[in-house]
């Protein structure tokens, strides 16, 4: 029972951290007039869940936002891995002229926050008439120097003999990447995937610049649209919309907690 003060303290802190979620859910279940009465009851007197959530689904294309989120995050992740894994392998295991330059470029890329390229990319995409497309949302993030760095570090710990053996078995470098290196790189790949999806699912900055309107809006933009267009002071529906858009990633997290935490920890520590 020496553990008791610790658990008590943790519980208090935990409740504080959970407060926004608790109140968000509570408000999303209450009718608007009850919210405006401003009492501290968590459980609604009259349940209005169907009303509130129904209003969200009726007013904004929720499924579209979520699907856009999946398309954008999936597209970004696909290209990031497609570009980064071979490059990471080459930097880790192969000897070639210009390797130092490429690695230098990676280190340079790690230093520059993505906000810096936003203006020129916006100008470029707009002059190509490509704003308001999935391409505009996905393209700028397809190159992740961080992913290259992460995979390089990971592949460096792969035994050279494994690669020599694959070469003796007649595999080309390309085949080695996808059939030998990648199957051994799952821990790094999952860690990076979690890092990437969390970052882009939650990102507001670039989608706000790249698209307008509902058609290509990501969940983050969706909530923003809902706030400005529909909700106004309709907190019940706004909380319902927030809960819906937050749910997918939180559910994924609750299902694969350890992977998420480890993924963020490893990528966090190396980034």
């Amino acid at each position: 029972m020496r553990d008791l003060p610790r658990l008590a303290l943790l519980s208090v802190l935990g409740l504080l951290m959970l407060a926004p979620y608790i109140w968000m859910l509570s408000a999303s279940l209450k009718p608007t007039d009850e919210i405006f009465r401003a009492n501290l009851a968590l459980i609604p007197e009259r349940w209005a869940a169907i009303e509130n959530y129904g209003r969200v689904f009726a007013q904004v294309p929720v499924a579209r936002y979520l699907m856009n989120g999946v398309i954008v995050c999936g597209g970004i992740l696909f290209f990031q891995l497609l570009f980064a894994i071979p490059a990471g392998y080459a930097l880790a295991k192969l000897r070639f002229a210009g390797k130092e330059w490429i690695f230098g470029a990676v280190m340079f890329g790690l230093l520059v926050p993505p906000h810096v390229q936003a203006l020129p990319l916006y100008v470029g995409l707009s002059s190509l008439g490509m704003l308001n497309t999935y391409t505009a949302l996905i393209l700028p993030s397809t190159i992740s120097v961080f992913a290259i760095f992460l995979f390089r570090q990971f592949f460096r710990s792969l035994p050279d003999d494994l690669i020599h053996a694959a070469r003796l078995d007649g595999m080309g470098e390309g085949a080695i990447v996808w059939r030998v290196a990648l199957p051994n790189a799952w821990p790094a790949a999952t860690a990076f995937a979690i890092f990437s999806v969390v970052a882009h699912w939650n990102d507001l900055f670039w989608p706000l610049i790249a698209v307008t309107g509902h058609e290509h809006a990501t969940p983050a933009l969706g909530v923003l649209h809902f706030r400005t267009d529909e909700a106004g002071d309709d907190f019940a529906a706004l909380m319902a919309a927030s809960a819906i858009m937050t749910a997918p990633l939180i559910l994924a997290f609750l299902f694969a907690q350890r992977r998420f935490v480890e993924g963020i920890a490893t990528t966090g520590l190396k980034g």
Binding site: L7, S242, T246
Partner: peptide, 28 residues
């Protein structure tokens, strides 16, 4: 005791949609 549970609780904001949670904070 409670390691995984509290770790999840404290970590939750990291995986939450900032825009949505900002709205929750606005209400709060």
């Amino acid at each position: 005791r409670g390691r995984a549970f509290f770790r999840a609780v404290f970590f939750l904001p990291v995986v939450s949609l900032t825009v949505a949670m900002a709205s929750a904070w606005q209400y709060l």
